[in-house]
Amino acid sequence: MKLLMKLLRVIYVVYAAILFLGIMFLILPPIFLASLLGKQRGGNIIFYFLRFWAHTWFPLVGMPVTREYTCEQDDEPCIFVVNHRSYLDAAIAVKVMRLPFRPLGKVEMSKIPFFGFIYKNSVVAVDRSNAPARAKSVREMMTMLKAGISVLMFPEGTTNDTKEPLRAFHNGAFRMAIEMQIPLKPVLYVDAGDRFPSGGLMGLNPGKCRVVFLPNVPVEGLTLDDINTLKQRVYEIMDAELRKRRQYPTLQATA
């Protein structure tokens, strides 16, 4: 029985990978043409092709992605802050976030053949080991926000492979929200870590992917002295909501 399950898992992963790459190669030519139109206009067009990819791939691999709104929807640019559990998170964002938006992503991903070209033309890439590069990424995100394009950030900074709902948050998203007086919108990816846990490609498996949109957290009147208070507030909101939807060992003090 174990051997059969292992074989089925291999077949599923190969099937999912073939679909992933096949759809990617299908949209690569129009994405290349769109990239010639620049970071803003071209980037917005690219996301429509990526959304086609996501709307095709997730159903075909048996991962229904559902959205739950605990607040009224609006079209104002914002800073999405999302928990980070899986390498699937960026793909889920393409499927469920309203357009236009730009995620902040690791520059290392742009080195992957073919996928890297799409990646560097659809995200704000950041090299966290390089201070000037980090500053450049922040300026690029601010430019996007001023142009009415939302940005998406994972405040944990890396994938959370602990047993706790969240890792400690970094300051970046909260500093930017205060400096630009742009609201924060917390979003929860509830099941992404189950669908593609850390540990390798063979962990990929079908099942639900719930996405929960929480109410905006306003920042009007806040100053940089309020970063830690704002960060803690958002952390507690997201932590509490995740615990409502999943079981965690114990409630521990937040970072």
Score class of each variant (00 low, 15 high):
6 K>I: 11
7 L>N: 11
7 L>M: 02
14 V>A: 13
17 A>M: 13
17 A>F: 14
20 F>K: 10
21 L>S: 13
23 I>C: 10
26 L>A: 14
29 P>S: 02
29 P>I: 07
30 P>L: 08
36 L>P: 07
41 R>T: 15
41 R>Q: 14
60 L>Q: 03
71 C>E: 04
71 C>Y: 01
74 D>C: 09
77 P>A: 06
78 C>L: 05
79 I>Q: 00
79 I>T: 00
81 V>I: 10
81 V>W: 01
84 H>Q: 07
85 R>W: 06
85 R>G: 12
85 R>H: 12
86 S>Y: 05
88 L>R: 01
88 L>Y: 04
93 A>P: 12
96 V>Y: 07
99 L>W: 14
100 P>G: 05
106 K>Q: 09
111 K>E: 14
114 F>Q: 11
119 Y>W: 09
121 N>C: 06
122 S>E: 09
123 V>H: 10
128 R>P: 01
129 S>V: 10
142 M>F: 12
143 T>V: 13
143 T>K: 15
148 G>P: 01
155 P>M: 07
156 E>M: 06
157 G>E: 00
160 N>Y: 03
162 T>V: 07
162 T>F: 00
165 P>D: 00
166 L>T: 07
168 A>D: 14
170 H>Y: 14
171 N>I: 12
172 G>S: 05
173 A>I: 01
174 F>Q: 04
174 F>D: 01
175 R>L: 14
182 I>D: 01
188 L>M: 03
192 A>T: 04
193 G>R: 04
196 F>V: 08
202 M>N: 07
202 M>W: 08
204 L>T: 03
209 C>I: 15
214 L>C: 06
218 P>G: 10
218 P>Y: 07
220 E>P: 10
221 G>Y: 06
227 I>D: 06
228 N>H: 12
237 I>S: 12
239 D>N: 12
239 D>F: 11
248 Y>H: 04
251 L>Y: 15
254 T>H: 13
